[in-house]
Write a protein that binds this DNA or RNA. Structure first.
Lengths: 341, 341
DNA sequence: TCTTAAAATGTAATCCATTGCATTTTTTCT
DNA sequence: AGAAAAAATGCAATGGATTACATTTTAAGA
C-alpha cells in the first residue's frame, strides 16, 4: 500500500517514457510528439500526479513566490492594495506570501529572513519604516532580490516605487478648502517619521504658502492614522478657543474618527468645521456626512507594483524609478464654507 | 567571481567539517560539540550562508507554508482574522500564503492546485462557498492536506472549524430589540447561499418565535454584506408603507450602509429605526450613531484556527470539531425604543 | 590501563524535477 | 534508395539539505 504522492517517475513508468519526456511534456508540450503527449496525459490522470513545487523550485532556482511586507494586515487601506497585487500575481502563476512587519521582534527578524533565504523571487515592500540597511546592497552580505516599494518608501533608497504624488494630493485638499472660503486650516497628521505624514504635511504647507496663507502650530494635531487618534484630536479641537474652521486629515480613518467624536459632542460637520480626508477608503462614501477626500487608486497601485516586480524579475530595466499614479479629488459633503452653522 | 549563493557545502568546507555536521549544528545544536558549534557559526558568518528553503522542503517533505483561502482580501473583516493567523504562524516559523478565491476562473483553479501540489503543509479555509467535492477525500485523487475552516464552513464537511455561534448572536440582537420594545423587526440578509446568511437568519427567526413574534417576508431585505447593498435596502425601507421599526443586519457594513443612506434621506437612527449590526468591525464604534452590534473575536478566531491547524499538522487529534468562540453583545447608540422620534 | 558506553562526526543515499548532451527515430530532399 | 536534416527521446548530472547508518573520538567505569 504505497502511500506517498506520485512523482514524475511514477508517471514515466506508467506512460512508458523517461522522466525527461514527461517533464518536457509538462513544460514544453510542443517538443514531444502528439502520441507521447496523450500517453503522458493519460498517465498523469491515472496516477493523479502533480508537480512537487519544492523539487521544481530547487532545480529551477526560483520559487514563483512573492513576499509582500506590510505594516498592518488588518488595515483596510492595505488590504485592497494587497488584493490588487494578488490578482496580478495569480494571473502570472505566482503565489503571494504576506507578512506583517509590526509583530514581535522575533517575527520581524524571521520576516527579514525572506530577503535572504531565497524563499521568494521578489519582494513588495509596503512599509517605509523598515531600517534602510536591510535594503542597501552595500551593507548586505548578499544582493537584495528584486524589490519594489508601493505606497510608502524608504528615503534615499533607489528601489523602484509605485505610489502617488502626496504633495499634490495635499494641495488639492487645501485648494478646495480655500475655494470654499477657509483661511484657518488645520491638519491632522499621520504618525511621526512616516514618509506619507511628511509629504502630506509639506504639500499642505506649500499649498497654503502658495495661497498666501499659513497654519499655526496648535492647529497641527498629532495622529497615527487610526480612528482613535482622530477622535482624540477632536477633543483638542473642542477645547480650543481659536480653532481652525477646516481640517485636512492625512488619512480617511482619522478624519472619520474626528468627525464621529465631534458629532457625539454635539457639533456638526461641515457646519462647525469642514474636513477633508485622504485615500478614499470605501467607508468614506458611507458615513454621514459623506467624506470629501483624495482618492488613491489602491487596487491599481497593487497591480502596477506587482507588474513592475514581475518585469524586474524577468530582467527588464525599470525606466521609471518613481511611478506616480493619478489621484482624484472627490468632493462630498464634509466640506462647506466656514461659519455656516 | 563565484556569484551563486553559498550552500551548506561552502560552510562545511570553510569550517572544516562535513555538511552533515553543519546541518546538525543548525537543526539540533546540542548534538555537536561546542568547539564545532562555534567553528560552524563562524563559517556561516563568513560565508553569509542561509538555508535554501526549496532544498530543505524537498528533503524534509514539508514546506512550512500555510495557505489561507479567503473570499475577499480587501474585506476588513477578513483582514483582521488573517492578521491573527499570521501572528501565530510567524511565531511558529511558518509562512502564510494568501489567495483570493473570488478571482478569474483560472485563478480559482490554480488556487485549488495548492490542495494538491504540496506547496503548503496545511490549509485554512475562510470561504464556505467552494465546491465541497474539493474537500471530500472520497472524491479526491489524493488525501486533503491538514485543513481547518474558520468563520465560514462547508455544509456536511467534517473538517474542524473555528467560529462562533451565529444563531446565538442573532438571538442576542433580537432579544435586545425586543427588550427595547420592538415587535416589528426586519432583517438585512447576507448573500444567498452563504452559511452565515443562513444561520443568522435562522437564529433571528427562532429568537422571534421564542418571543411569540414573527417577521414579514417584505421585511427581509436582500443584501450581500457590502455597504452598497445596505444603502439599497434603505431605499426600500423608505418607500415602505409599513416598515419595520428595527433592523437586524447580518453584518456591520450593510448596517452602516443602511444607516448612511437613511441619514442622507433625512431620517435618523435610532429615532426612526433601530439598527443592530454583526461583527463589530472597527468602524462600528466610530460612525454616528455608534453601532450596536455583536462582537466576534476576529483576531482570536484567526489565532485559534492557526493553532488548531498546527496541532493537526503535528498529528494531534482535534477533539472539538466545531469550536465556537465567545461573542459579545455590544450595546451602543443605534438602538432605542420604537417611535421615539 | 583496558573495556565499554556515549558522544561526535562522516559517508552516502535520498527527496523530485529539470536540462545539456547523446542517441535514436522520423522526415525531407536529391 | 541513400544522405542529411530535423524531430523525438533517453541518459545522467544537477540543485541543496537531511538523516540512517557506520565509524571514529571521547568519557566513564572497572
Amino acid at each position: 500500500m504505497e502511500n506517498r504522492r506520485p512523482s514524475i517517475q511514477d508517471v514515466a513508468r506508467k506512460a512508458g517514457f523517461s522522466t525527461a519526456t514527461v517533464s518536457r511534456t509538462l513544460s514544453n508540450p510542443n517538443v514531444v510528439s502528439e502520441t507521447t503527449r496523450n500517453a503522458v496525459a493519460e498517465a498523469i490522470r491515472a496516477t493523479g500526479y502533480t508537480v512537487n513545487v519544492a523539487a521544481q523550485s530547487l532545480r529551477r532556482q526560483r520559487t514563483c513566490n512573492i513576499v509582500a511586507l506590510l505594516p498592518n494586515l488588518a488595515n483596510p487601506f492595505f488590504s485592497k492594495v494587497v488584493s490588487g497585487i494578488s490578482k496580478v500575481l495569480a494571473a502570472e502563476g505566482y503565489s503571494l506570501m504576506v507578512a506583517d512587519t509590526r509583530g514581535s521582534l522575533d517575527a520581524q527578524k524571521r520576516l527579514l529572513g525572506h530577503l535572504d533565504q531565497g524563499s521568494a523571487d521578489g519582494l513588495i515592500l509596503l512599509d517605509g519604516d523598515i531600517p534602510p540597511r536591510h535594503f542597501d546592497n552595500a551593507q548586505r552580505s548578499r544582493p537584495l532580490p528584486p524589490t519594489v516599494m508601493a505606497c510608502e518608501w524608504i528615503d534615499g533608497s533607489t528601489l523602484p516605487r509605485i505610489g502617488i504624488d502626496n504633495e499634490h494630493g495635499a494641495a488639492l485638499a487645501i485648494d478646495h478648502l480655500h475655494q470654499k472660503g477657509h483661511s484657518r486650516i488645520g491638519h491632522l497628521r499621520g504618525p511621526q517619521g512616516n514618509v506619507l505624514t511628511r509629504t502630506r504635511e509639506i504639500g499642505m504647507r506649500d499649498a497654503l504658502a502658495q495661497l498666501g496663507l499659513s497654519t499655526r502650530p496648535e492647529w497641527i494635531f498629532a495622529g497615527d492614522f487610526s480612528f482613535a487618534s482622530g477622535a482624540e484630536a477632536a477633543q483638542q479641537w473642542l477645547s480650543m478657543p481659536d480653532a481652525p474652521t477646516a481640517i485636512f486629515s492625512a488619512n480617511d480613518e482619522m478624519a472619520i474618527g474626528f468627525i464621529g467624536a465631534l458629532q457625539r459632542a454635539g457639533k456638526s460637520v461641515p457646519e462647525d468645521v469642514s474636513v477633508v480626508g485622504f485615500d478614499d477608503i470605501e467607508f468614506a462614501n458611507h458615513v454621514t456626512p459623506r467624506l470629501t477626500t483624495i482618492r488613491q487608486p489602491r487596487a491599481e497601485i497593487g497591480e502596477v507594483a506587482a507588474k513592475t516586480l514581475l518585469q524586474l524579475i524577468d530582467g527588464a530595466e525599470i525606466d521609471q524609478a518613481d511611478r506616480q499614479l493619478d489621484i482624484e479629488f472627490v468632493p462630498r459633503a464634509s466640506t462647506s464654507g466656514p461659519c455656516k452653522g
